[in-house]
């Protein structure tokens, strides 16, 4: 679905943040992107959804250079849940979720019958139906994140990109969010690409992990294949013990 080829990227002529990234995302994958702060995770998402343009290399979306696609075309395929979602005004939940219909409606059409259903489904799937009349800025962090995911789902995307969807959430809400995402991945076959900071959570929910450091992919592949004691020490500079098998988890050593 997405091919990232030798991508080099830097902001405004500064030092490169991405140093030659190669990545292949297949349909139905659920990929976690892990790496220390400043390793270029968010920047990689930006390049892959076409809001940032690489200095060198290309990003192909379903075989076409993403730079040749109009924003609306991209938005019909890729939905992004950004890390920050500041709103200028008091919007109600339903209004925010309806924004996801933007790429599907012509400028001068005022009705969107398919859209109504997509919006209702998205709110149902994310469990925010009862919140529809609430002001988004007055919701809890977990509820708010669900609304943002609902907006992304209302876009009816093939690929869902999330930038730290569990940031600032407690473990209960983090798991709710990840369950929700996983369910969409399994039921609708939406390809998921998510930046995560919690290794355990990534290991629990993702099929594949890409480990990033200094703008380079250190390792990519299945969870047990990538999250080894050696690679984690190399990337995060901490000593850990990995307990494999069904109860996969990572224990941080003193």
């Amino acid at each position: 679905m997405i091919r990232v080829k030798e991508v080099v990227f830097g902001y405004n002529g500064g030092a490169p943040v991405l140093n030659g990234i190669d990545l292949r995302v297949r349909k139905g994958d659920m990929i976690g992107i892990l790496g220390p702060n400043g390793s270029g995770k968010s920047t990689l998402i930006g390049n892959m959804c076409g809001t940032l343009h690489p200095r060198h290399g290309t990003v192909l979306l379903e075989g076409r250079d993403i730079r040749s696609l109009r924003r609306k075309e991209i938005a019909r395929k890729i939905a992004v849940v950004p890390q920050k979602s500041d709103l200028g005004f008091d919007y109600r939940v339903e209004e925010i979720v309806s924004m996801g219909r933007y790429p599907h409606i012509g400028r001068f059409s005022f009705r969107d019958p398919d859209g109504r259903k997509a919006v209702e489904d998205a709110m149902e799937q994310t469990g925010v139906l009862e919140l529809r009349e609430k002001i988004v800025d007055r919701l809890s962090g977990g509820e708010r994140q669900r609304v943002m995911i609902a907006r992304a789902l209302a876009q009816e995307p093939r690929i869902l990109m999330l930038d730290e969807p569990t940031k600032n959430l407690d473990i209960r809400h983090s798991m709710d969010i990840m369950d929700l995402i996983r369910k969409r991945n399994e039921k609708q076959g939406i390809t998921v690409l998510s930046v995560l900071h919690d290794l355990d959570l990534a290991a629990k929910y993702c099929d594949e992990i890409a480990l990033l450091k200094n703008g380079k992919i250190v390792a990519v592949g299945g969870v047990e294949e990538v999250l080894t004691e050696r690679s984690i020490e190399k990337v995060f500079d901490i000593k850990v013990r990995v307990h494999g098998g069904r109860g996969f988890h990572i224990e941080v050593m003193g």
Partner: peptide, 19 residues
């Protein structure tokens, strides 16, 4: 609709498909 998208920030507006 474009203005709604802008109210969520320029970056989000792009994600939603706004030129």
């Amino acid at each position: 609709r474009d203005l709604n998208a802008f109210s969520a920030g320029e970056e989000t507006a792009k994600h939603l498909g706004v030129d």
